[in-house]
Design a protein around this nucleic acid. Structure first.
Lengths: 238, 238
DNA sequence: GTATGATTCAAACGATCGTTTGATCCGGGT
DNA sequence: ACCCGGATCAAACGATCGTTTGAATCATAC
């Protein structure tokens, strides 16, 4: 990870680091190429020379971290499936592989992973077409793998329902990572934690797992309805 | 609601409608005042005349819908608390008051409510400072009310934990509403539903409730640990 | 030392941004 | 009939955007 990221010596790396930081701070459109280049300590034309334009720069800022992130997700999932020797994985392990890797990256404040994850969370809501297409093709393969793993892990839940809930979980994580300051707005009382990013991971994990295994909505075409009803009744007591 | 919204006759209303639509489609910064005015069928200077600038226009686009939305949330909550006659409300009712109102607005595709909620969901991730301050003061009172209601409804859960989970729920909803097309990216198989916004509500609701009532993360300072352990054990069967 | 390709630079290009100006149009009150 | 304030208009302002140009600089191989 570290060998491809961040180098103080070469211009290209300094530009990427500055872009990542400023994109996360002000947004993609609000960050100008001049602002970028000044922060990287190089000329405006150099930025265009290395990346061929703003769009190329944006693509590269995401690519250098996303490829590692998604490869790591698949590696952890592969490892887990190998250890399970054919049996379906427990849902919490699948979530750990997908979201745990991302949350560990978000907790890495020195290496810039925290900055990037904040940027990534904000970019999920980006209306720009080329960003959507780019993120879609970066995520397509890994999402397909995790969808299949969840289908196997939750045979009682209709597949469409799992897709919906995967969507909800992605939203909760993106928003939680992107809006560390947004949480302060709704908190008013200071969360006493020293490192908010480290406190986030276990809390988000149990929230996501609870949402994933929630009783199905009424009128949903469940393949096995009885067990869900039992769970719903027992939860009423909590 | 309808009396303050949308009027085809006066310029001011046409500008607000056009701005709402284009902001949701291209984002706040990517939508220019000229684009706006052309879509509203009026002159560029008229837009500045009515709203005093782009910032004033943005503020008004959000204000006219947000004040109604939050007033309605409080009205429903008041109604529920009156019916409960002093007893703490069930959590699912509180979520219904907060998220149900928003989801009904998001399902109103004719009145423009769907457009606005898509815009609102995307704006939660907006890095701009003045937007954050504006949304914070619009939401401060209503969030405080719902936080207190949840504290009463879940006395066994530490208050800090509830704040975290409220944060997660807001993220899941924002993302779910803002990214109806983002869901298509991860789905690949077409969700057969005719109206995706109507299909969203019950699914999101049960997901949020499941997350809210999930077992607390390990090492969390629970005030009453025993009932949580029991719930965790019974859920393992699902 | 010198030629060569990669890199950085100051400067300018055309386009578009948000905002402002001053004239013009329109309806209701005296 | 006159006036006046609100509303709309075409036109321009200065600033900033992304991108391009052509010369200067650097490292490297011959």
């Amino acid at each position: 990870m570290a060998d491809e990221i961040a180098s103080v010596v070469d211009t290209r790396g300094r530009i990427l680091d500055a872009a990542e930081r400023l994109f996360a701070q002000h947004g993609l459109e609000a960050t100008s190429m001049r602002m970028l280049s000044a922060a990287a300590g190089c000329n405006l034309a150099s930025t265009n020379y290395h990346f061929g334009g703003k769009e190329g720069l944006i693509r590269e800022v995401f690519r250098r971290r996303l490829t590692w992130l998604n490869r790591e997700r698949l590696r952890v999932l592969d490892e887990m499936e190998a250890a399970a020797t054919g049996r379906p994985l427990k849902p919490h392990l699948i979530l750990e592989a997908f979201f745990g890797v991302a949350l560990r990256m978000a907790a890495d404040s020195e290496g810039g992973g925290a900055t990037f994850m904040r940027l990534l969370g904000r970019t999920y809501a980006e209306p720009s077409q080329f960003i959507r297409n780019f993120l879609a093709e970066e995520y397509a393969a890994v999402l397909e793998r995790f969808k299949r793993a969840l289908f196997r892990a939750l045979p009682a839940v209709p597949e469409a329902e799992i897709v919906w809930r995967l969507h909800f979980m992605l939203g909760a994580m993106s928003y939680a990572i992107a809006g560390t300051d947004a949480l302060k707005l709704i908190a008013h009382c200071e969360l006493d934690e020293a490192n908010p990013a480290a406190a986030l991971a276990p809390r988000l994990m149990s929230f996501l797992l609870g949402g994933l295994r929630a009783p199905l909505p009424a009128g949903c075409t469940a393949q096995r309805a009885k067990p869900d009803a039992k769970v719903r009744r027992s939860r009423r007591a909590a």
